[in-house]
Design a protein around this nucleic acid. Structure first.
Lengths: 194, 194
DNA sequence: CTCTCCATGTAACTGGTTACATGATTGG
DNA sequence: CCAATCATGTAACCAGTTACATGGAGAG
C-alpha cells in the first residue's frame, strides 16, 4: 500500500513477463528460456534485467513467489501471476500500444555510405543477409511444426503462429530489399573498378 | 587528452549525427529537422537527447562549434565535423553493426491475446494499420520525387533512396501480415458471436 | 491574445547493457 | 580437467524519455 509503482503504462518487459506467467508458472531461469524460444524474435531480455524486473514486480504485488527446494540443483523461485497482475495484463491488453520504434544502424550506415568504398557496404549487407537467412530458416522450421499439428492444437496456438508469420514475412521482405541493395552496390563496384 | 570517452562502439546516435554533419554543417535545431525528414523512419531523436549528445561530442573533440549571431532570432551554434569526428565516422563504417533489435509490444500482445476478446485485438491491429498505411503513402510520395530526378541527381541520392526502399518493402510486408491477422481475427469473432 | 516557429538547454527518471560474482552437478 | 547447464543476483554505466525552463518574432 502507499507506494504507487510509477505507471509508465508502456514499459513492456513487465507485460511480456505477465503474458508468459499467465500461461505457466516459472522460475526466472525458465522464463528466460521461454523468452528466447517463444518471444525471442520480437522481445529479448537478459537474465540480469529479468531477475531485477521480477523482484520489482514481486514488490509491486503483480506476481507471487514460492521457493522450490531441489536436491542436486540450486533452489529456485517459482513465480506465478497474482490477481493484481492479471488485472494489469488485461488493462494493458485494452490499452493502445505505442507505434514500434526502429533503430537500425545499418540503415544509417547505408544512408551516409558514400564516405567509404561500396565493397565495405556490400560486405556488411552480405553479413547481415546471412543472419537473416538463418533466422528465416529457423522460423520456417517452426512454421512446419505448427502446420503439422492437429486442428485442435492449431487452434490453440493460432495467435503465437500469427506472430511467427510476422517474423517470416518480415525476414522475406528484408531479404528482398537486400537483393536490391546488393545489385546496386555490385554495379557501383564494377563501375569504380573499370 | 586524458579522458578516453568510453568506447561503446555501437552507440549510434553519435554516428547518425556524424553522418548528417558530414553532409552539411548544422545547428542542433536544424539537425533535429534533418533527423525527422531524412532518418525519421529508422532513427529518431528528441531535442533534449540531441543537444546533450552534441555537447558530449564537442567535449570529445568530434565536432567543432561556432556561434552564429542572428538579428530577430536567437543565436545559434553551428556544428561541423572535425577531422577526429570524420575518422570516427570512417571507423564506424568499417565496423560491423549489431543485428537490429526489435521490441514490438503489439506482437507480445497478440502472442498472449487469448486473455481478451478478439475484437480488442482487431481494433488494435486496425489502428496500427492506419499508421502503417500513412507511412507507406508518405514513403511512396518520397519515392516518386526521387524517381522524377535527373540521372545525375538519382546517382547522388542512390544510397538514401535504398533506405527509402527498405521502408517501403517493410511497410508493405507489415500490411500483408495485417491482412492475415485481420482475416483470422474476423473468423474468430464470427465464430464466437454465433 | 494566443499559437507556432525559432533556439537552447537542465534534471530526474526509466529501461537496458556490461561487468562482476558465486557455486554445485553432469557429460565428454 | 573442462565445459556446459542449473540458478541466482549486485553495481556501474549508458541510452532514451518526460517534465521543466526561457524568451523573442511573426501570424491570425
Amino acid at each position: 500500500m502507499g507506494r504507487r509503482p510509477s505507471e509508465t503504462l508502456f514499459m513492456s518487459l513487465k507485460h511480456a513477463i505477465l503474458v508468459l506467467l499467465e500461461q505457466e508458472d516459472s522460475s526466472g531461469y525458465d522464463l528466460l528460456k521461454r523468452f528466447k524460444e517463444h518471444l525471442g524474435f520480437f522481445r529479448q531480455a537478459s537474465h540480469q534485467q529479468l531477475y531485477k524486473q521480477l523482484g520489482q514486480m514481486h514488490d509491486a504485488g503483480l506476481i507471487d513467489c514460492q521457493l522450490a527446494e531441489q536436491s542436486g540443483k540450486p533452489d529456485k523461485k517459482i513465480y506465478s501471476i497474482s490477481p493484481a497482475g492479471y488485472q494489469c495484463l488485461i488493462d494493458w491488453m485494452n490499452s493502445q500500444s505505442k507505434p514500434q520504434k526502429v533503430n537500425d544502424s545499418l540503415l544509417v550506415k547505408l544512408y551516409g555510405g558514400h564516405v567509404v568504398a561500396p565493397e565495405i557496404l556490400l560486405a556488411e549487407i552480405q553479413h547481415s543477409r546471412e543472419q537473416h537467412e538463418k533466422t528465416l530458416m529457423l522460423l520456417q522450421t517452426m512454421e512446419q511444426n505448427y502446420l503439422s499439428l492437429s486442428a485442435q492444437a492449431k487452434e490453440k496456438y493460432a495467435l503465437p503462429y500469427l506472430t511467427l508469420r510476422r517474423g517470416i514475412l518480415g525476414e522475406q521482405a528484408w531479404l528482398s530489399w537486400a537483393d536490391e541493395v546488393e545489385s546496386y552496390l555490385q554495379i557501383l563496384t564494377k563501375k569504380n573498378g573499370a
